[in-house]
Design a protein around this nucleic acid. Structure first.
Lengths: 221, 221
DNA sequence: ACCGGTGCTGGAACATGTTTCAAATCGGTT
DNA sequence: AACCGATTTGAAACATGTTCCAGCACCGGT
């Protein structure tokens, strides 16, 4: 996090610890990230690891932030193409999803870590969500990913947060094995189009713009 | 649940175990649900508990289902009022959220359990999501909560799932202490109105229907 | 009353996250 | 080079989720 005092060796050690965790998680998921192993592989003592990270979840959330920053970098270099916002946002989610599914064990482990519920951790999780939202907003605009969170309008923030939440919940479901890759893509596309308007065709024809779901069903009382 | 062979005593024991977990979780959250304690308080041996539930998370997800069914019952008796779908759905989420926040420790514990990631569990988590979606759809329609998942149209399902995901992600954030009660209500209201159309007034005035977020920002290239 | 099986009990055993601490190390200062 | 404070190490100790198992209790059928 680019803290005020960035000791070279300390940063280095912390980085190595996180990277080791990522490797172990890639191979065997959450349980495979045994802190003794992490410490050993990273060449530090258990105590050192605990000086740097408050818990196993903390470690994995750090990994999540690292990976998400890498995603942001990738997006910056090769932004999702598309003439209108919907296409671009859908494109972005496809990239993000593919990134997650490429290393399922790691992703599942990181996702699980976000649910720990300790306030300190939650703040770091929020950083992840902010990063995601910024990427979504920039895809929406068709502009390169902003520095961090500059002039995002209220509307953009609302839509960005909303879509991010939908995606996150989908990932959580996927993590349990419920949602397949294809389903995720479909659900995300449908959600984006529902929220942004139907710029691309939907799978479900239905009456025009559908007159707004369930507008007046039920008792004509 | 409601398995083919429902032994009286077995059911009874399982129920007592879950209820004990709920009590402990209410008091001290996830960590307070020590399985030895649960077993002791419920008057069974550890082995029995493990015969019935695969893990601590399994136990808490069972609690989640129980509580959610209770919520459905409450909703059935006193459905959210409101002339149009938006109002009713917002009303529903207010009830659901209030229910969660009334027992923060328990709710946090249950939410955390949903993230375990074991496939077997994920299925049970999906039951929870289905229950939620059904309640959302019935609020949308203004009809009483359906039996379980009868004739829900594709559109209803899409909107219901979407809103459920948004709410779930919000709850996850709340669990970490990031979102306050007021923020949750606001976010949910804004999301519902964005998705269902602006039947109730939004806080953000903006140009008409806002011409769709970020439609053509950026380089006029 | 006996049998067989099914589930329960009590308790030990194990794995792993987390804590703790004295001794060793390191980097910079004098 | 000796010294100091901060950090790391190595190892033990704890807490708790999870597994195992031997013996007991109950229950329905013979």
């Amino acid at each position: 996090m680019s803290a005020p005092h960035a000791d070279p060796a300390l940063e280095e050690r912390a980085r190595r610890i996180v990277e080791t965790s990522i490797e172990l998680a890639e191979r065997g998921g959450f349980e495979a990230v045994r802190l003794r192993d992490v410490a050993a592989h990273a060449g530090v003592a258990l105590g050192t690891l605990y000086r740097r990270f408050r818990s196993k979840e903390d470690l994995l959330v750090a990994a999540l932030e690292l990976e998400t920053r890498a995603l942001a970098q990738r997006i910056r270099q090769r932004p999702p193409k598309g003439a209108d916002p919907s296409e671009r946002v859908v494109g972005f989610f496809e990239i993000a999803t593919r990134g997650m599914l490429r290393r399922p064990n790691l992703s599942r482990a990181m996702l699980r870590a976000t649910a720990a519920g300790e306030p300190v951790l939650a703040q770091k999780v929020e950083v992840f969500h902010d990063l995601m939202r910024n990427m979504i907003v920039s895809a929406l605009r068709g502009e390169p990913v902003d520095g961090d969170a500059a002039g995002i309008s209220d509307d953009e923030q609302l839509v960005g947060d909303l879509l991010n939440r939908v995606w996150f919940a989908l990932m959580m479901s996927w993590a349990g094995g419920v949602q397949s890759q294809g389903t995720i893509a479909l659900q995300m596309r449908a959600s984006v189009e529902l929220v942004l308007g139907r710029s691309v065709r939907m799978t479900i024809p239905q009456t025009g713009a559908m007159g707004r779901v369930g507008m007046q069903r039920g008792k004509p009382t």
